[in-house]
Design a protein around this nucleic acid. Structure first.
Lengths: 224, 224, 224, 224
DNA sequence: CATGAATGAGTTTTCATTCAT
DNA sequence: CATGAATGAAAACTCATTCAT
């Protein structure tokens, strides 16, 4: 059931079947625990064919990461219309993100969990994607600041940290939503939007949180 | 250089050396890729001694997780004074958290990345710690709402989602700070505090973010 | 010399080669002392292939036991014609038994010595075969009693003990014959036949051995 | 309970404790599976002490075999009075044998099962004892033949085979009796005595079993 | 193209054995 | 004497990878 085993399929199709199988196995077992035997079997092909097309376990894993990263960025890109307001763009992006990750849990596991912990080479692949998203979010923050008639000269590192925290929150929330029954992508997006945007909004209006107490051991919180 | 190789040490000392080595190797390579050979060599002992004291690779990994989790919770607990205001408690907790994770990057890698992906047994150890922290944050949110003279009847799942997002943001930020030169624990704590608290503050005052546009495909964002 | 090392043989053939090697090594060294390395080398293949085909050391040992037990019972079964007289059947069976064990000393060692002392699982395999043989011998005893016009109601445990002793004597004699130069299967069979059958014959005729002396510490010998 | 742990016992006593423990462990687990750790623990002493007194695992095993073999021969020797008739001597010897083996199952396991399958060196120790017993039985057979007024010129190999079969039957019966609830030493001795002696008796009177049938493939059974 | 047959290299784990105290 | 500390050597088992057909 599922995959019909038929001989002589075009190479591109066979490769996709192999990647499908590999993403599922890598996502479930992790890079090291996944065995090429299992992947070949699930893909319905013989092991030497996997090597013929994908070269090695490392290359196969890299191919998985690339494909899943491309699919995720494409999903987010497609979900966002750049001619709308910044907050709307963020909302649409989050919704697309949570929707895609909930529909591709194995792919998300590969990107979020597996790829980060098996050597710089793999992590770099994910980092590239991640930086694209962080850059997009950073851009939105700057635009939002401009729309709010504020000087767009927030310290660069500050903005990077904010974007990082936002993306990190989104990633954690995605994992949590995948593991918690009854949480929809829309709910996740709304939670994060409320959480984040209101905080950003306050900051845009010059009302960052500050420490009320004046005890000696705590310097002013504005990051230099 | 570094570790002085001296023979015949009492068991307790040797065990700590082994755990130190194991945390470093597990943190760098991951559970599966780490080899007992490498750990024993880094600890400056022979492999059989590692097995004599720590029993098996699984038990060794579990011991690492337990030790690092205990150290982290202890650090946060020690950093927080429960008689202060909720926002101050959150600030102190975040500062202690980022300080500890930046001082123990391998330990944090073990907890945050490695332990979660190698079987329920290991993940459960971390989950216990994480739930303690999420519960603490949830508590702070409820207290803060009360202090702000608001009804403390935020929807339970909403609060859970917020706490999850906050903790997730902190975790991601910690990993990012460890990997990015020149980011101090204080800066991370300040970034997250500004980001999160102001957002929470807005919500407390009844000003959550809402979608301005009224296009047809987007329902109201308030989570039911 | 001996085994020609040729690559790429069909699986069934390789499996038999492996079992041949395993029986020899297990028979010589015993289960625990035998190493998979040695077996693989003697079989002329690499260790992974042994595991690929036979799964584990336990499974390999079990396969050896099964093959040797089947071969031995088959040899005895083939040697006996059930339409002949009981004594002739016993003679033919003994001859087939001693012939087979002398031709397959390693296999006999595996069955007689090795399999019995490495866990219930292995012993059970042999016990099954042994019980088949003991049952056959028991049957012959009963038939012989009937042919001798005697009531076939010898006490059941008595018959069981007799059969046990007879089979045990045969087993020991086989081991002894294997280890002693110049003893043929025919001689072993004749010795045992004389020894056992004449004894049984006497008993059939109501002349069991009894203790002549009447010293106090020795009760009558007839088992109740 | 059982062994009282007290310091500073004379060497001879300590050695016996170690041998007691070793016989039990070797008897249960077999030579290879027995670990020196376990033996030392059961003996209530530290491992280095075992090595100080008994030198090595091999030497320890050899010591076990020697002690158990000596105990068994001593038991049989004590049970037999050489001034009685041959059949009475055999009966007394069998009774002593079955009594001792049933009282020392671990020791019997070491001698009968373990020692035979771990290298010539160990087997030789048992063979020495076994030959002593076989010689004794052979002697009894010759004496009995003389008492029966028969020429004592039974072929030597024939007698050796008979003695071997008798001893083998006894050994098997001992193992079977140990494993079968409710079989007493006296019953085992009686069974074997009836079985064997009556057979021998017939032979003494010139009535060995012979093959009745005259089919071509079976030569006369009298061993040349 | 496709695959059954095969393996080199490495993994976790165990154990008999020895010092230094 | 007695022992806690420590290890060299080897065993079972796995896996990514490659030919020959």
């Amino acid at each position: 059931m599922g995959v019909v085993k038929s001989k002589r399929m075009p190479r591109a199709v066979r490769e996709q079947q192999m990647l499908d199988a590999a993403v599922e196995i890598f996502g479930q077992r992790g890079y090291m625990a996944a065995s090429m035997d299992e992947i070949a079997e699930l893909a319905g092909v013989s092991k030497p064919l996997v090597y013929l097309y994908l070269n090695s376990k490392e290359d196969l894993f890299t191919a998985c990461i690339r494909r899943e990263a491309a699919a995720l960025t494409e999903a987010v890109r497609t979900g966002v219309r750049t001619d709308l307001a910044a907050d709307r763009q963020l909302w649409d992006g989050l919704l697309a993100f949570f929707t895609h990750t909930s529909h591709h849990p194995h792919g998300w596991s590969v990107l979020h969990l597996q790829a980060r912990i098996h050597g710089e080479a793999f992590a770099a692949e994910v980092t590239a994607m991640r930086e694209e998203i962080v850059a997009f979010v950073t851009h939105l923050i700057v635009v939002a600041a401009r729309e709010a008639h504020r000087d767009p000269d927030l310290p660069e590192r500050e903005v990077a940290g904010l974007a990082e925290a936002l993306v990190g929150a989104a990633e954690s929330l995605a994992a949590w939503a995948n593991a918690t029954a009854g949480v929809t992508a829309r709910q996740s997006a709304a939670t994060l939007m409320n959480f984040a945007w209101a905080g950003l909004g306050n900051m845009m209006e010059g009302r960052p949180w500050t420490l009320q107490d004046t005890s000696s051991d705590t310097a002013p919180l504005q990051v230099s």
